[in-house]
Simulated scan of single mutants.
Amino acid sequence: MEGKEEDVRVGANKFSERQPIGTAAQGDDKDYKEPPPAPLFEPGELCSWSFYRAGIAEFIATFLFLYVSVLTVMGVVRADSKCSTVGIQGIAWAFGGMIFALVYCTAGISGGHINPAVTFGLFLARKLSLTRAVYYMVMQCLGAICGAGVVKGFEKGRYNSLGGGANVVNAGYTKGDGLGAEIVGTFVLVYTVFSATDAKRNARDSHVPILAPLPIGFAVFLVHLATIPITGTGINPARSLGAAIIYNKDHAWDDHWIFWVGPFIGAAPAALYHQVVIRAIPFKSK
């Protein structure tokens, strides 16, 4: 293990620039350095403390995310009148606000993914290795399960009767409606993540890295406003899995596939659009 800690910002790897890539490589006067694509497998990570520290950060962040957000959902559901609670807007603020706070806290340690769909999109864009992507997803799911479990501990007997914060396709909507809402919602989130962490923007505008958690959290807030009536808003497979496992009722599992397939489908075109259309990174200069 090296004496100094590795740079674990989103997209950073311990490799020198191998090959100029993208339109950014077409001039010698660029004011930033494009990170090289992450290798598919990076065995050296397994011997690095920062690798495990990053996974722990993802676990704790997802744990806290589920704890606060699902407790907010339960508080709204248990009330006889939504006017006496924070309502749907408050739920959206709880999810978006927690993402803003947690991304701010963990961005310099793990990249602040807190979502397997975000990790998947960044993996497709070669921002991190398969080793790290799988590790992050496992830790995110474990954190979500523990967070939802603590919520059940607080609610105790009323947890199941209040729905447990589990995602389901609501009455009046088809499974296709729910899948479409998850795809588009996740596209918005992942596209925002790519734009907020863009290396070129970070180099030219010094305020961008500091403000990055704000648009990401705000994107989560807006997507929740739009899709809570449809699916309760997943756009995060770990969040949906944690609530479903602790709630563990048949109707929650009936629609559960939507909250994995939708986010992963939505993340893929978001990564492709940003990398190929916005940045043209896959195209090497002559």
Rank of each mutant, 00 (worst) to 15 (best):
P209H: 06
G97W: 01
P43K: 12
G178V: 02
A94P: 01
A268R: 05
A79C: 15
G176F: 01
L46A: 11
N115A: 10
T231H: 00
I216M: 07
F264Q: 13
T62W: 06
A148M: 09
G90P: 05
N13M: 13
P209L: 02
F63M: 09
G217C: 12
I210V: 15
A148S: 03
L130M: 13
G96K: 13
M139K: 10
G185H: 02
G176P: 03
K249N: 09
V73K: 06
T62E: 06
E182T: 06
L225G: 02
L64D: 05
A166D: 00
G153A: 01
V220R: 06
A125E: 00
K14T: 15
T186N: 02
E17T: 14
L211G: 02
G112I: 10
H113Q: 11
F194I: 03
T227F: 02
R18M: 12
E45Y: 03
A133Q: 06
G55Y: 07
G96Y: 13
V277E: 12
G111H: 06
M74D: 03
Y191K: 04
R132S: 12
L222Q: 07
G108V: 05
L241W: 00
N236Y: 07
G172R: 00
I230K: 01
I88V: 12
V261I: 12
F59R: 08
M137W: 12
T231N: 01
G180F: 04
P269V: 07
F187C: 11
I235E: 04
D29L: 08
V8A: 10
L225P: 14
Y67L: 10
Y104V: 06
L46E: 07
T192A: 01
A148P: 00
F264I: 08
T197H: 03
F15A: 15
H224Y: 13
Q26I: 15
L222D: 10
F63R: 06
N167T: 04
A212S: 09
A148N: 03
H251V: 14
P37M: 11
N202F: 07
L272H: 09
I109E: 06
A199D: 07
V168A: 01
F51Q: 03
V169G: 00
